[in-house]
Each structure stands twice: as structure tokens, then as C-alpha cells.
Amino acid sequence: MALLVDKHRPRSLDALTYHDELSERLRALAQNGDFPHLLVYGPSGGGKKTRVIATLKELYGPGVDKIKIDARVFQTTSNRKLEFNIVSSIYHLEITPSDVGNYDRVVIQDLLKEVAQTQQVDQSAKQKFKVVVINEADHLTRDAQAALRRTMEKYSPNMRLILLANSTSNIIAPIRSRTLLVRVAAPSEEEICQVLESVGAAEKLKHVDALNKRIAQESGRNLRRALLMFEAVYAQNENINANTLIPPPDWEALIAQIADEIIQEHTPAKILQIREKMYDLLSHCIPASTIIKTLAFKLVPKISVNLKSEVIKWSAFYDHRIRMGSKVIFHLEAFVAKVMRMLERQA
């Protein structure tokens, strides 16, 4: 059975419950016939993808719901074969070029060219152009982005791009200036509560207002997370009340534990224990930058005011190093050591 987060995903612009003005604008663009390239950005779990899919539906009608997944093989200049998955309907296709890492340029060039050089198959289609949705556009290499820019210019009669990104910071300026920027802010806590309430009602779950509020708060304005938390709470407990425990994901619990340990004991032996836990996290594919960020925010409420900005400072410092370096554990550990020393000084 499907998760609530999938089951109750709005399928059309009408069904979207927040950012009404934005929905209206998207609808207007879709109906106008002069649909520009879009760059949709905003934090994770804010509903970018949902909105884009709804917009596509507005553009083409229900045909976009019939999707299939194909694997295409591309050949790089060094004759390496890349397998690449494409989700498509007859009107649009969706790709995640950053999947193939540094070869994303090849995929972008070949695939988009191919798409652009063929016209809409369905002669009765509402639009003459096809839409290509590009996920994680901010993870594209510069090369790929440059290629994208050319493609946009060359093939715009037959094709529109919708780029999805978490932030515009890593998108090169030429692309930003060639696309219409659409910011999708995360829903506010009240908006999340509303969604939870309506989902709860649809599922005939007991409505506990205070609990919903707590979930909204804990989710950090991430709707997807809020829905998952909501479902997890209801799946795990028979009696739901305002004080029902909202269990964090295991990785977060472990990081919280590390934070506690850092505060309690400042010794080399502890460092070694923490190192082991870090390895545990890393080996479970938890990104190092997530670890350091979560750790910093778990530490901050527990330490004295003077140290808070210090902790943030070092976490930002080592976060940068994690991006730049190769052995993330060095930097994580240096951060932990730094914090321990600060705490020890103060004690």
C-alpha cells in the first residue's frame, strides 16, 4: 500500500493547498501558450515536483499521468557506456542527469537534441512543444549547464525545459537569465497542519490538533517529512494523543546521541567512540554534510550562549572542508575535537 505522502499527493493545480498565487501564475503560464523555460527552486519537501507535475497536467491534460520508465544507453567519448533512466509520457520526459556524474553533459546534449529535433507525436496535443523536466539541476556540472544553455537557445521552438533545484546558487547566470525563476517556498507550519488535517480526515484517523502542530514544528517546514512522520506516528501507536512521541529517524537519533556524548565527556577515548558512530553513519550513506549540520543544530540548544556562534562557525568551516576534501571523517572529527575543547575550556 502506498504511503500517505504518495497517496495524497495533489495531482492538479486545483488540488494544491498552499501558495495559491503561485499556482495561479503557473496556471496562467500554462494556458497562455507562451510557456517559458522554468527554473523551479526551493527547499526539499516544499512541493516543487508536485507543482511541476500539476503544471504539466494543466499543459497537456491527463496524458502526462501515463508514464513509463526506460533505460537508455549513452556512449561517452571514452567509449564508456552509461545507463540512464528516463521517465516519460508522450508529452514530457523527466531526467536526472546528475546521476551519471561527470558525464551529465553527454546525456544533456544527446538526449535534448534528440527530443528537440522531433516534434510532438500527438497531433492533437495542446502544445506544440514537449517539456523536459530536469531534476537536481543544481548538481549539474558547469559543462552540462553550458550545454543546457546552448540547447535552450537552439531548440526552444520544440522544447521547454523545467529545471528543478534546491537553490539557484549553483546555477550559472546565463541559465538563470534564460529561465523564469519560480520560487517554491516551504509551506508554513499552519499550512502543514492543514494538509495533515485533511489527510487525516481522508484516512479517517483521529484528529489531534496539538500533535499535528508538533509534527509541523519538528518537520522543519518539510511537508514530505511531516507526512511521513504523521503516518509513522499513527502506524506505531494505538492511542494517539497530544503527547504521543514522535520518533526521529534512526540516523537523527544517533546524531543526537553523539551530541550528548560530546557534551558529557571530553576525552580522547570518547573521540574514538564517536568516530565509530560517525563511520556507522557514513557507511549508511548519510551525507557527511548532513551529519555535521544536524550535529551542530543538536549541539546548539544544549550549550551556553557564548559558545553557540562558535559552534556554528566551526560547523560551517568544516562543512566547507567536507565539500572540498576527500576524507570526510578527518573533518568531522576535527569538528568534534574543536567543540570538546571549547566545552572543556568553559568548564
Binding site: R224, R225, E231, P247, P249
Partner: peptide, 9 residues
Amino acid sequence: ERLPYLAQI
């Protein structure tokens, strides 16, 4: 997000 909560569920 997805997998941890899925596991809880």
C-alpha cells in the same frame, strides 16, 4: 526521510 520513516511505519 523516506526509508527511515517507512521502516518505522
